[in-house]
Design a protein around this nucleic acid. Structure first.
Length: 568
RNA sequence: GUCCCCGUAGUUCAACGGAUAGAACGGAGGUUUCCUAAACCUUAGAUGCGGGUUCGAUUCCCGCCGGGGACACCA
């Protein structure tokens, strides 16, 4: 199914050819209803190229072509824009088509890719905290959208399950562990023994030495230390899984750093053999002397003490994803502080001859009301589970005030969907690069660009169908009489235009924005056009608009990882 | 010091180089014998500063100012 944008773009191409002009410009949705539904700047672009008057060129295009079919005769406006107003019956016909299309008009990608999405990636033996929200929620949404567009997606949790901190953890496990506490809350106890060990290390050189030895033994494959390590990993994963359950996030694979351990020597060997790496100050380094930005900044892939580091692991990870998983695209949804690191990793991949599309997708921070990184009163990271629980509790309280008659199971279900949805949507509705200030009141508000507002629009539609007491059946025809109906219908048709653009620059906020505008258009329609009280054929037609709005809202929110309740 | 990101109404956020910079919250005013007023309508209010490229700049380039981050063996 082609979008109006596609169809008009094709018409424009024909018109330019008919006018003996080169292809130029683009068709975009109109920036203002006064300019119709779509517009093109083709004449402006050509005017620049050819050094001619833009309005005259626009006229020439319109004179040369009159088979626009789906819209009224285009008009010229402003500096030389050509404006298109779609014919209502065309929008109506398209809307009817969408009702029969499970994909809601969204075309599958022309060349599907195999995409590894690396997101979340918490560290073992440490609690997940607010800092993990953005990567987790953003990565999951991008994965969902890519899947819907027909890509072959592998979600990978690149756990921080290896590294120097395990010297501390193992020492603490052997000397300080409280088994009962571990049963009550594994990560809390692991954090406690880590911290206590850390204090002892600072005070006592003998402990420092003992910790170092535990790490060496682990790395050498000592069975006892390996089994302790394994247990801490398993315990941590169980707690992570609990959070993922609440968030409705699921991974296809979870290849932590440890997975790559036995591949590291070969990576260094290979890079040395191919002269990509060299030895400098006793370490094996990759220099990027031809890349000005990286000229002074080598990547160290083997430390002078012979140990490997995270650059080594990440090079091995790129190998694995391209060679073993056969990915041609990798999205690394990792915070902005690691920009330099991933520039180096991607530059190494290029030198190795990999042509896969490797993207580091960065994002800003979550700030507290004080505009500093969000922390608890005592200056600690806010645990993710506490935050999610609070979201659900707060949602529950609001629902109880607004709609006390709901049954207990309904309240539980709604609080979950509204609370978690609010947290996710608040994150996804903002441009990923900007820092944002965390605010319960804003994200749980039923007004404005929030999940509850969108969920409420959906719920209102469901309520109409409950009241109608009938299942939806598609009407023979859709008629768009009122302007609110036309606006809503056009908006519904544009879902198919919006979804693919999200992946252009990895901006789910574009989709969020669209859904908000859709809900706005729906509410305007809802105010102006009675549904159940209207006469046929308007009634059936309006029910169809309601149904389609509900489907698009639900699907759009689903692509963001957000669920919709039937009541709220 | 070098490099990267960000700077838009009082506040929180939008805007593939396009038309008179959009919303929301908060402020002011209004709408309900009617499908969830959890809504809708009206209204005032902003591109950090200075140059440049362009028919056109919030967007691209240069220089300042302000905030954050990264820069050889932590991840």
């Amino acid at each position: 199914m082609n979008t109006f944008q596609d169809l008009l773009t094709r018409k424009l191409a024909e018109a330019l050819a008919a006018a003996s002009l080169p292809q130029a410009g683009a068709v975009t949705p109109a920036t203002d209803p006064r300019f119709g539904d779509y517009q093109t700047n083709a004449a402006l672009v050509l005017a620049k190229q050819l050094g001619e008057n833009p309005r005259a060129l626009a006229q020439r295009i319109l004179d040369a072509y009159d088979r626009w079919d789906l819209c009224e005769p285009p008009t010229i406006a402003g500096a030389g824009f050509i404006n298109f107003t779609l014919r209502p019956e065309i929008i109506a016909a398209r809307t009817a088509e969408l009702l029969r299309d499970a994909r809601l008009g969204v075309a599958p990608a022309e060349s599907p890719r195999r995409i590894v999405v690396d997101f979340g990636s918490p560290n073992v033996a440490k609690p997940m905290h607010v800092g993990h929200i953005r990567s987790t929620v953003l990565g999951d949404a991008l994965a969902r959208i890519a899947i819907f567009l027909g890509h072959d997606v592998i979600r990978d949790n690149h756990l921080g399950d290896w590294g120097t901190q395990f010297g501390m953890v193992i020492y603490g496990w052997k000397n300080l562990l409280d088994r009962a506490a571990l049963d009550r809350g594994a990560i809390a106890e692991l954090v406690r023994i880590y911290k206590e060990t850390n204090e002892k290390v600072a005070a006592d050189p003998k402990v420092r030495e003992a910790v170092r030895e535990e790490l060496v033994k682990l790395q050498a494959g000592d069975p006892e230390n390996l089994s302790i390590w394994k247990e801490t990993v398993d315990l941590s994963l169980k707690e992570f899984e609990d959070a993922y359950q609440v968030l409705d996030i699921h991974y296809d694979i979870q290849r932590g750093e440890s997975f790559y351990n036995d591949r590291l020597p070969a990576v260094v060997e290979r890079l040395l053999n191919s002269k990509i790496a060299e030895i400098s100050e006793g370490a094996v380094c990759v220099f990027f002397r031809d890349i000005p930005e990286l000229a002074e900044k080598p990547a160290i892939i083997r430390k002078s003490d012979g140990g490997f580091n995270y650059a080594t692991t990440d090079v091995a990870t790129v190998d694995y994803r391209i060679q073993d998983l056969k990915a041609n695209t990798v999205w690394l949804v990792v915070g902005a502080p690691q920009i330099l690191h991933f520039k180096q990793i991607i530059a190494i991949a290029r030198r190795e001859g990999y042509t896969a599309d490797l993207r580091h997708i960065t994002f800003g921070s979550i700030l507290g009301e004080d505009r500093k990184l969000m922390k608890t009163r005592s200056g600690e990271n806010v645990p993710l589970r506490d935050l999610l629980d609070e979201a659900v509790q707060r949602a529950r309280k609001i629902i109880e005030e607004k709609n006390p008659d709901l049954s207990e199971p309904e309240k539980i279900d709604i609080a979950q969907k509204v609370g978690i949805g609010a947290v996710k949507y608040y994150d996804l509705s903002q441009y990923r690069m900007t820092d944002y200030i965390f605010s319960w009141d804003r994200m749980l508000s039923f007004q404005g660009n929030t999940a509850p507002y969108l969920q409420n629009a959906y719920v209102r539609i469901r309520s109409i169908f409950r009241k109608a007491g009938q299942e939806f059946t598609a009407p023979a025809q859709i008629a768009l009489g009122a302007p609110e109906e036309k606006t809503l219908a056009l908006r519904l048709c544009q879902f198919a235009e919006v979804v693919p653009t999200v992946l252009n620059d990895f901006r789910p906020n574009v989709l969020a924005n669209y859904l908000f505008e859709l809900a706005n258009s729906f509410h305007a329609f809802y105010e102006a056009c009675p549904v159940l009280k209207s006469e046929e054929p308007a009634r059936g037609s309006r029910l169809a608009l309601c149904e389609l709005t509900a489907r698009v809202l639900a699907k759009g929110l689903d692509l963001l990882g957000i669920k919709v309740p039937e009541k709220m």
